[in-house]
């Protein structure tokens, strides 16, 4: 299932939290050889995890991490603007309608549908909060995966080569890609809405009705 959790809510799901940061170490340090910091417990965390980001996480049936990504608003501090300006033509990307998405990570034994489910979660965030775009930092080789899922980014720049290649790209939040993502993620439409509402609150009648 998809979980939408701010960093200050992760303590409610200790197994999910711990397996997520460990899977991130495995993916970004061990497999991709990115220059990331891993603590003595094997958790990959950076300064942006300390800014109370919003995580979109695929939780497996055993409660562990299947995949995740991390959102931050571009009106505050972001990784793209702090560290990747050379990949965005030197333009600090800032807008209340654009959020940054980083650390797209898949668990080691994730089912094939997990990447589609995560992209679906990202889309629900964008559509649910009326955003126009996401700007993302990603493993350059992921472009093929995004293409297969039917939601490709506009690539702004690439640095490095092979396994250490990193890209910055833009995803437009477009409702027309939603049916294909639901289909590939094998998630029914209403279930996806349910997961979203469970995280961000259901639209109950106005508080007055509850007070009266």
């Amino acid at each position: 299932m998809l979980r939408y959790l701010y960093a200050d809510e992760l303590h409610l799901f200790p197994k999910l939290r711990d397996t997520m940061f460990r899977d991130r170490a495995r993916q970004f340090r061990d497999r991709l050889h990115w220059d990331v910091a891993v603590d003595t417990n094997g958790n990959e965390r950076d300064a942006y995890d300390a800014m109370n980001p919003l995580y979109v996480i695929w939780q497996q049936a055993d409660g562990g991490h299947g995949g995740s990504m991390r959102f931050l608003p571009t009106t505050g501090d972001t990784m793209v603007n702090d560290h990747f300006a050379h990949l965005t033509d030197g333009v600090p990307i800032q807008s209340p309608l654009i959020w940054e998405c980083t650390r797209f990570c898949l668990g080691t034994d994730a089912e094939p549908r997990v990447s589609a489910a995560l992209m679906l979660g990202g889309l629900e965030v964008g559509l649910g909060f009326h955003l126009t775009d996401a700007v993302g930092v990603f493993d350059a080789r992921m472009v093929r995966v995004y293409r297969r899922l039917g939601w490709e980014p506009t690539v702004l720049g690439i640095s490095g080569r092979d396994r250490s290649a990193v890209s910055v790209g833009l995803w437009a939040f477009d409702p027309t890609v939603r049916p294909a993502l639901l289909n590939k993620a094998k998630v029914p439409d209403r279930l996806s809405h349910l997961w979203f509402d469970r995280a961000f609150g259901q639209a109950a009648p106005a508080p007055l009705a509850m007070v009266g």
Binding site: Y6, D8, N52, L72, D197, F200, A204, P207, V211
Partner: peptide, 26 residues
Amino acid sequence: RRFHPVDWKRLDWSGKQVRDFMGEAQ
């Protein structure tokens, strides 16, 4: 500490203290 826009309907208005507060606010 959050950053997503929210309709008040989606917030948690349960609990006596909160309901008293809302009554007074209205």
